[in-house]
Design a protein around this nucleic acid. Structure first.
Length: 856
RNA sequence: GCGGCCGUGGCGGAAUUGGUAGACGCGCAAGACUAAGGAUCUUGUGAGGUAACACUCGUGGAGGUUCAAAUCCUCUCGGCCGCACCA
């Protein structure tokens, strides 16, 4: 074999060439269809991790493929640069967040570049640059004008570790999404965005996102949590007050047997104060706080207030309870209980001996006498019974009737509820975008900072010595004057949630240098037209209801404020799986790095101590478990192409990928093998007019591969694309040309192969392309086209089944008809044997697929 | 509890959407070249069975539909993810 492939030298040579040529810079070009590929931009932590490698490799394959298919491809990169790690670094190491962030960006940029990504780096930006967040401040003020942004005192989620407010989406199981600390409830003045005004549109447009994973759409749908129902009043008999109740099942009103209020309902205290056992009850409710939500079926407990409420339609009175399973956050914080048709109410009623009245009967059973259900609530479909004038109506009709009646007598109204809450965007932190308002000291009036004073920049001379928000502690920054009156005023010292930045960055790439606007409308219209946004967005599923929901909302808000025409930011979404690795523990049960575990005489031992090592399951890479692989080492040792190949091989991109040493070795071997075989191959121009059967077979493989690889990439089945490429390689390298026709077929195969490995292994592809005599790079090389007519052979081999079992295979001419297939199949000895002398009953022939001989 | 995804060789995974199950890779085995091989090349590799064929079994399990089922239907077991008392 030839000389070894010099990975380092060759790869950096081509990267330099691309860089010198400005190979991936794009501008709007109306003559070509556009394609916008975007991966979720990284937080500049300082080093890339394997998840980034997977993410950006996937995007790069799509970008390079689409470019070869003739699209004008936008593939940008930037930095999600605001956030707490920078402040923590400042506190721990005394380094300024700005410096820390920019240093990290510089080193991560080099790491990403060493992957050989086809990025248009001229569009790069960091969200912490005033040039970026200036636009954010302008948009916010426009939102304020439009009533999309507002400020009010509300109860918020407070993360006691990060010392800041969190949005609802950022609280997972009652704990902060970053810190894992149980959140506290605090009452604060804070800025919010009216995402709830967009609930209906956000929900409705999910239908159109047909290139999104079903899973993400369902998660968003559930998060928005729309429900339609009735809100109406019940009278408390003893004090003549009224309680507002919300229900999605007004049809079951005749089945009501109690009323229940949330423990923190405003009326609860008033009804129960001083009653025996009430304090104990409240204490017990609190004992089962949200943090224990995981505990199965927290028992339903109630407190009988002794009051009764009048059933609005029936005139009958029902008892009023306080119950632990009623949430103040949802609806009105009060319900009427229908034990027969709600399992929770059933449990409650059974425990406290309340009536259970069946009012819905399964349709088929409607005529038979009904009894209270024995084993729980019936929540299925059916018709109304025991409900006077509603009897016999369907559930839907009964709902409509009850709502109409309540609206007529003024006791209530039909209404829609959402689980979604407005997005609180104030954060009491330094390293974020300042909120551009001031408060006049004299009267507290909130005044927008005028346009000519924007951006409100972060001060750089800050101190982290004191706890709390450095902006608040800064000696002078917040003291300013009112732009309207010139009176003393105080700046808002809160900054925006960092999800604010990532909500619109996809637009900024379309026009990253614009000083006057977030994005020029025409440029945005080219890359992100009204009918569709980013063509392919790629990232982790963990943002299903965070970033991905905020960005959708933000896009619609920007549209309503006239910044863009686009209504959905990401028309295509792909969520990749995690990268996992085996875990290793030493004899003291401590995690150790994979590199410290070596195999010796069939056993795993510690490389240094020699102690016994146990291997644990392959799980998500994490620093604490030490099962991490540093991409920089991989890229340095094996090169970018091998790393890219491995990360695309084997596992479908949506599933978890197990990183293995043998896997990356295998990819590296393939890179070398391909180089060795193709760099020494003597390709001759051939003659298409005289093709042997052998040459025809090779052409069929070539065109089958072109079709297969293309379809696999389009379907995001990168593992299959790689398999097709390897199969193709195995085929044409086994081919020994002997005449001019053979040379034609071989050259076609090899050149197609080189172009097709380019999205996966761009450096190797360029090197081989150059070695085979081409002057130009592969940047503008068109994807090979396949000829459908070459995919079919003159003859084909198919299986022959006898009574459904494969017994033989036969070769038929391409145009064989049923009779011919039958003659040839029945002539086959194995078929005869399997038929065992039995009579032919039926003969099935599916051309190109199968033959089935049915006997009996 | 509700919703979603998924069960195929020793392993990761293919299977043109109902048509020769196990493509491609990893691993393993044998051989070749070697001073050496953890390099490279060739061959083999679902299980049982055979000298080799034949044959039998085989896609978590049990039924069913069909000429034909990994694929469709019913039931069932197991794993993963999301939401979680949302009225």
């Amino acid at each position: 074999m030839s000389e070894r492939y010099n990975i380092k030298e060759t790869e950096s040579k081509w990267r330099k060439r691309w860089n010198d040529d400005d190979a991936f810079a794009v501008t709007e070009d109306e003559s070509k269809p556009k394609y916008y590929v975007l991966e979720m931009f990284p937080y500049p932590s300082g080093r890339i991790h394997v998840g980034h490698v997977r993410n950006y490799t996937l995007g790069d394959v799509v970008a390079r493929y689409k470019k070869a298919k003739g699209f004008n491809v936008l593939h940008p990169m930037g930095w999600d640069a605001f956030g707490l790690p920078a402040e923590n670094a400042a506190i721990e190491r005394g380094e300024h967040p700005k410096k820390w962030t920019h240093e990290n960006i510089a080193s991560m940029r080099e790491q990403l570049k060493s992957m050989g990504l086809s990025i248009d780096w001229s569009r790069e930006f960091a969200t912490c640059d005033p040039e970026y967040y200036a636009h954010e401040q302008r948009m916010f003020l426009k939102f304020l004008d439009k009533g999309i942004a507002y400020r009010k005192e509300s109860i918020v989620n407070w993360d006691p570790v990060d010392n800041t407010v969190l949005a609802n989406e950022q609280v997972i199981d009652g704990c902060g999404w970053r810190t894992g600390a149980p959140v506290e409830r605090r009452k604060l003045n804070q800025w919010s965005l009216k995402i709830t005004d967009y609930a209906e549109e956000l929900l409705g447009d999910l239908k159109d996102l047909d290139r999104w994973p079903e899973k993400v759409r369902i998660m968003q749908e559930n998060w928005i949590g729309k429900s339609v129902g009735l809100q109406f009043k019940w009278n408390i008999v003893e004090n003549d007050q009224q309680v507002e109740v919300y229900t999605t099942r007004p049809d079951t009103l005749f089945g009501a047997s109690f009323l229940a209020l949330a423990p923190d309902h405003p009326m609860t205290k008033q009804l129960c104060e001083g009653k025996d056992g009430f304090d104990d009850f409240i204490a017990e409710c609190q004992a089962h706080g949200t943090s224990e939500a995981a505990i199965e079926k927290a028992e339903k407990i109630g407190f009988d207030t002794g009051f009764t409420a009048t059933h609005p339609l029936l005139g009958r009175d029902v008892p009023v309870y306080i119950a632990n399973f009623i949430l103040m956050d949802y609806g009105t914080g009060a319900i009427f209980g229908v034990p027969a048709h709600d399992q929770r109410d059933w449990d409650f009623a059974t425990k406290y001996g309340l009536d259970i009245r069946t009012v819905i009967q399964e349709t088929e059973l409607a005529s038979s006498p009904c009894a209270a259900p024995k084993e729980g609530a019936y929540t299925g479909d059916g018709d109304l019974v025991n409900s006077q004038w509603l009897d016999g109506l369907s559930i839907e009709d009964a709902k409509a009737d009850v709502i109409k009646r309540c609206e007529a007598d003024g006791s209530g109204f039909g209404t829609t509820q959402y689980r979604l809450r407005d997005w609180g965007v104030s954060r009491q932190r330094y390293w974020g975008c300042p909120i551009p308002v001031v408060y006049r000291n004299s009267d507290g009036a909130c005044i927008a900072v005028p346009d000519d004073q924007l951006p409100v920049e972060l001060p750089e001379d800050i101190s982290f010595d004191k706890p709390g928000n450095p902006l608040d502690n800064h000696p002078t920054w917040k003291h300013t004057t009112c732009p309207e009156t010139g009176e003393p005023a105080t700046r808002e010292t809160d900054t925006f949630d960092t999800f604010f930045e990532s909500s619109w960055y996809q637009f900024r790439y379309c026009d990253a240098q614009n000083e006057n606007l977030p994005v020029d409308k025409d440029k945005a219209a080219y890359w992100m037209p009204a009918g569709g946004g980013v063509d392919q967005y790629i990232g982790g599923v963990e943002h299903a209801v965070l970033h991905l929901l905020y960005a959708r909302f933000f896009t619609k808000a920007m549209r309503d404020c006239g910044f863009v025409d686009c209504k959905e930011p990401f028309s295509g979404l792909f969520t990749q799986g995690m990268v996992t690795h085996e875990t290793y523990k030493d004899e003291n049960d401590k995690w150790i790095f994979p590199t410290d575990a070596v195999k010796k005489d069939g056993d795993w031992v510690h490389a240094e101590t020699g102690g016994k090592v146990t291997i644990g399951p392959s799980i998500k890479m994490s620093k604490s478990k030490k099962n991490v692989i540093d991409p920089e080492e991989i890229l340095g040792t094996y090169g970018a192409d091998a790393a890219r190949l491995f990360i695309l091989s084997d596992s479908p991109p949506e599933r978890d990928l197990e990183w293995t040493e043998s896997g990356i070795d295998g990819a590296w071997r393939f890179v070398n093998k391909v180089y060795g075989a193709l760099s020494t191959m003597d390709l001759k121009d051939g003659d298409e007019s005289a093709l042997s059967d052998k040459a025809k077979d090779l052409r069929r493989l070539t065109h089958k591969s072109i079709k297969g690889v293309g379809e696999a990439i389009e379907a995001f089945a990168m593992n299959k694309a790689v398999a097709f490429l390897r199969e193709f390689y195995n085929g044409f390298t086994a081919f020994k040309p002997s005449d001019a026709g053979d040379h034609f077929a071989l050259k076609e195969a090899v050149e197609s192969f080189i172009v097709m490995i380019n999205p996966v292994m761009p450096h190797l592809a360029e090197e081989l392309w150059a070695l085979s005599g081409h002057e130009t790079t592969l940047i503008d090389q068109e994807w090979p086209k396949f000829d459908e007519s070459l995919l079919v052979a003159d003859t084909f081999t198919i299986g022959v089944q006898v009574n459904g079992k494969v017994r033989a295979s036969i070769t038929l001419p391409a145009d064989a008809d049923q009779k011919m297939a039958q003659d040839i199949a029945l002539a086959e000895e194995k078929v005869q044997r399997a038929m065992d002398g039995k009579a032919l009953r039926k003969f099935i022939y599916v051309p190109g697929r199968i033959v089935n001989v049915v006997v009996g």
